[in-house]
């Protein structure tokens, strides 16, 4: 490390605000996404109360164009967040090795949590794309369509030995845990970096919220499988 006065540092210094904007944008996009995620899970969990409430809410989102605006906005936000947060992640092989070795050697809780965030980010990125692709292909969203989706198993193709596997319930369980883990600890990290609060207390509060949301998610997934089981054969959709 030395006082680097080369072309790059000299010309980049004149754009001194970029680093601030980028850092702020990363934190803000993270806060917005966790806000979206928690709201999303609360909305989905209305199916536990009653499928009618879920449908009313879903229809409302469509009628007032909240879904039509909200979904593209969320996709854009995810892309921005990936782009900005990626610069924090160890991307070179050398950096990955250093990160893994240091985390393992120190066995420091917060450092391990962050490694988990990098890994869960990969899961969330891929699975959110799949999730979006599927829901947009079966629009509009209603309790019955969601139930059929969640409960659908493998193709049961005879050439595959009529093999079935509950792909989607497994998919959603992993997606739920990875998403809430990434978001919950992400918010923790944003508050640690910017906030006034003692982080151990704050950590427990956020862990509590995350456990509740994951619980709601599981309850909603279970309800969907029950709805699917009670649908007439062939899955009549209202």
């Amino acid at each position: 490390m030395e006082l680097a006065k080369n072309l790059q540092t000299t010309i980049n210094r004149s754009h001194g605000k970029t680093d601030l904007y980028v850092d702020l944008a990363q934190s803000i996009s993270g806060v917005l996404l966790i806000g979206f995620l928690w709201m999303h899970m609360l909305f989905v969990a209305t199916v536990v109360v009653s499928p009618e409430l879920f449908n009313t809410l879903s229809e409302g989102l469509d009628r007032y164009y909240l879904a039509q605006v909200g979904i593209p906005a969320t996709i854009l936000l995810i892309i921005i967040h990936i782009f900005l947060a990626l610069r924090r992640a160890p991307v070179r092989l050398r950096d990955m090795r250093i990160t893994y070795r240091m985390a393992k050697m120190m066995n420091h809780y917060d450092t391990w949590v962050w490694v988990g965030q990098v890994v869960s980010a990969l899961f969330v990125g891929v699975m959110a794309s799949i999730h979006l692709w599927i829901i947009l292909g079966a629009w509009p969203l209603r309790a019955a369509t969601s139930a059929v989706r969640v409960a659908s198993s493998g193709p049961a193709d005879i050439t595959w030995g009529a093999f079935t596997f509950p792909f989607f319930i497994v998919f959603y369980v992993i997606f739920l845990i990875a998403g809430e883990y990434h978001g919950g600890f992400g918010l923790y990290r944003i508050l640690v970096k910017w906030g006034w609060w003692e982080r151990h207390t704050m950590g427990w509060v956020l862990k509590g919220i995350t456990v509740i949301i994951v619980g709601l998610g599981f309850a909603a997934l279970y309800t969907f499988t029950q709805i699917a089981a009670n649908l007439p054969a062939g899955g009549v959709i209202h």
């Binding site: 001194g16 680093d19 601030l20 980028v22 850092d23 924090r88 120190m106 420091h108 917060d110 450092t111 962050w114 990290r189 944003i190 640690v192 970096k193 982080r199």
Partner: peptide, 13 residues
Amino acid sequence: NEDGTFGCVGLMA
């Protein structure tokens, strides 16, 4: 800048 305060990831080690 990124080498200073905005470079901190908040790992708190």
